[in-house]
Amino acid sequence: MAVITMREALNQALSEEMERDGRVILMGEEVAEYQGAYKVSSGLLQKFGAKRVLDTPISESGFAGLGVGAAMQGLRPVVEFMTWSFSMVAYDQIVNNAGAIRYMSGGQYSIPIVFRGSSGAGLQVGATHSHTPENWYANVPAMTVITPAFPDDAKGLLKSAIRSNNPVCFIENEKLYGFKGEVPEGDVLTTIGQARICREGSQVTLIANSASTHVALASAEQLAADGISAEVVDLRTIKPLDIPTILASVVKTSRVVIVEENKPFAGWGAQVAYEIQHRAFDSLDAPIERVTGLDVPQPYARVLEQAVMPSAERVTEAAKKTLG
């Protein structure tokens, strides 16, 4: 199996899906001539031409809404936000139009659109450029929210997202674009809505997504050094949540730490914690812990930002707390 970066995996997914379906188009800032701000769309303009790979002006509301209108007419747009932090400018189009037109019209329209791009903090770009908005979009009833942590999932889930007949927020994390992993050759899809156990363990379950999965895995190493066996569940999809996989792990370990980069108030971890206590209350041996981004706007200075981010040390400390 080839070892490639997350960036290359996403590029393969786009290329393969554009190859197989002429209705798939890619639009966004710098996706064509510049080859993508993060090089995810590298080479696609040359391969598919300017009719299908479109540089947009800096008009997130305009081009996100344009994508929704095109989807209403049967195209299958992939709309790239250079970063998800900029998607707030397009919030009305994503929430009210992509999110509600099918429902408001009594089911007359399908909106097969993928909004995707980078997200996340930790690279010292300050409060405006550091958002992890999966919890915001998961609050939209019709929305599917996907947050891959590994290259194979990035490819397989993006291919599935493009083939979905419904709106998808596909939220990548900037810190992971250079992360390498094995990716199967060819047309391999990853099923949306299924978590994966990326490390088996028996004493505590660490539930994470996206870049936080790697924080959880680092913590699991630290815990192992202290003789504690941690299981790491990578949710992969935030909505719909894979509740059966979560519960199976909780039943096994009886202790839970949720690791999420987004801010604590109504972060997705709050929903996961609710589901666990509601459905597996008797399995819990300790209160559920959450390690989140701290409830402050993202600061610039490295020492401050590192204090705000979830870290392996904070996760390890929380895990030990559940073990008493």
Partner: peptide, 29 residues
């Protein structure tokens, strides 16, 4: 929020100006 896809009547939109990018997208398609 009136809609009739059959009659190519694509709404009926409640947010002031929110339909204008959609129109560009319909025309794009």
């Amino acid at each position: 929020h009136f809609f009739s896809k059959e009659k190519h009547f694509h709404g009926g939109h409640g947010i002031v100006g929110g339909q204008t990018p959609l129109a560009a997208g319909i025309a794009f398609a």
